Deep mutational scan, measured.
Amino acid sequence: QDAKLCERHREKLHYYCEDDGKLLCVMCRESREHRPHTAVLMEK
Rank of each mutant, 00 (worst) to 15 (best):
1 Q>Y: 03
1 Q>E: 12
2 D>S: 13
2 D>N: 10
2 D>Y: 06
2 D>L: 10
2 D>P: 12
3 A>K: 15
3 A>R: 15
3 A>M: 15
3 A>L: 15
3 A>W: 15
3 A>Q: 15
3 A>V: 00
3 A>G: 14
3 A>S: 15
4 K>S: 11
4 K>Q: 14
4 K>M: 11
4 K>I: 01
4 K>E: 12
5 L>P: 03
5 L>C: 05
5 L>E: 09
5 L>T: 10
5 L>I: 04
6 C>G: 00
6 C>K: 00
6 C>W: 00
6 C>A: 00
6 C>E: 02
6 C>R: 01
7 E>H: 07
7 E>L: 06
7 E>T: 09
7 E>W: 03
7 E>S: 05
7 E>V: 04
8 R>A: 14
8 R>C: 06
8 R>K: 14
9 H>A: 01
9 H>W: 00
9 H>T: 02
9 H>E: 03
10 R>I: 06
10 R>Y: 10
10 R>G: 13
10 R>F: 10
10 R>A: 13
10 R>V: 04
10 R>T: 05
11 E>S: 07
11 E>T: 03
11 E>L: 03
11 E>R: 08
11 E>A: 06
11 E>Q: 10
11 E>C: 03
11 E>D: 01
12 K>G: 09
12 K>A: 10
12 K>I: 08
12 K>Q: 02
12 K>V: 03
12 K>W: 05
12 K>M: 04
12 K>P: 07
12 K>Y: 09
13 L>G: 14
13 L>C: 14
13 L>N: 14
13 L>E: 15
13 L>H: 01
13 L>M: 11
13 L>A: 15
14 H>N: 13
14 H>E: 12
14 H>T: 14
14 H>G: 12
16 Y>E: 07
16 Y>C: 03
16 Y>Q: 08
16 Y>K: 11
16 Y>T: 03
16 Y>W: 06
16 Y>R: 12
16 Y>G: 05
17 C>M: 01
17 C>W: 02
17 C>R: 04
17 C>K: 12
17 C>N: 06
17 C>S: 05
17 C>Q: 05
17 C>L: 01
18 E>K: 13
18 E>L: 07
18 E>W: 02
18 E>R: 09
18 E>T: 09
18 E>Y: 07
18 E>C: 10
18 E>M: 07
19 D>G: 07
19 D>A: 11
19 D>Y: 07
19 D>F: 11
19 D>T: 14
19 D>H: 06
19 D>R: 06
19 D>I: 08
19 D>C: 03
20 D>K: 10
20 D>C: 15
20 D>V: 03
20 D>R: 05
21 G>F: 03
21 G>N: 06
21 G>H: 05
21 G>C: 06
21 G>R: 10
21 G>P: 05
21 G>A: 11
21 G>S: 08
22 K>R: 08
22 K>I: 02
22 K>Q: 12
22 K>W: 02
22 K>Y: 01
22 K>V: 07
23 L>I: 04
23 L>A: 10
23 L>F: 13
23 L>K: 09
24 L>A: 07
24 L>R: 04
24 L>M: 06
24 L>F: 01
24 L>T: 04
24 L>P: 12
24 L>W: 05
24 L>S: 05
25 C>N: 00
25 C>R: 00
25 C>L: 00
25 C>V: 00
25 C>Y: 00
25 C>M: 00
26 V>M: 06
26 V>T: 13
26 V>S: 14
27 M>L: 11
27 M>H: 15
27 M>Q: 14
27 M>W: 10
27 M>V: 13
28 C>V: 00
28 C>D: 03
28 C>F: 00
28 C>N: 02
28 C>G: 05
28 C>P: 02
28 C>E: 02
29 R>G: 04
29 R>P: 05
29 R>T: 11
29 R>C: 09
29 R>L: 10
29 R>N: 03
29 R>Q: 05
29 R>M: 10
30 E>M: 05
30 E>C: 01
30 E>Y: 13
30 E>A: 06
30 E>R: 09
30 E>G: 06
30 E>I: 07
30 E>S: 09
31 S>W: 02
31 S>I: 06
31 S>V: 03
31 S>N: 14
31 S>T: 09
31 S>P: 03
31 S>A: 10
31 S>L: 07
32 R>M: 12
32 R>L: 13
32 R>Y: 12
32 R>N: 13
33 E>A: 08
33 E>H: 01
33 E>K: 08
33 E>G: 03
33 E>L: 04
34 H>A: 05
34 H>R: 04
34 H>M: 05
34 H>V: 02
34 H>K: 06
35 R>C: 01
35 R>Y: 05
35 R>W: 06
35 R>L: 07
36 P>L: 08
36 P>H: 11
36 P>C: 13
36 P>M: 10
36 P>T: 13
36 P>G: 15
37 H>Q: 05
37 H>A: 04
37 H>F: 01
37 H>W: 00
37 H>G: 04
37 H>K: 09
38 T>K: 13
38 T>Q: 13
38 T>Y: 02
38 T>W: 00
38 T>D: 07
39 A>T: 14
39 A>S: 11
39 A>R: 05
39 A>W: 07
39 A>Y: 04
41 L>W: 07
41 L>E: 14
41 L>P: 12
41 L>Y: 02
41 L>K: 12
41 L>T: 08
41 L>V: 12
42 M>W: 05
42 M>D: 11
42 M>H: 11
42 M>Q: 11
42 M>L: 13
42 M>C: 07
42 M>A: 11
42 M>N: 15
43 E>Q: 09
43 E>L: 02
43 E>H: 14
43 E>A: 07
44 K>D: 14
44 K>T: 11
44 K>A: 15
44 K>Q: 14
44 K>W: 03
44 K>I: 02
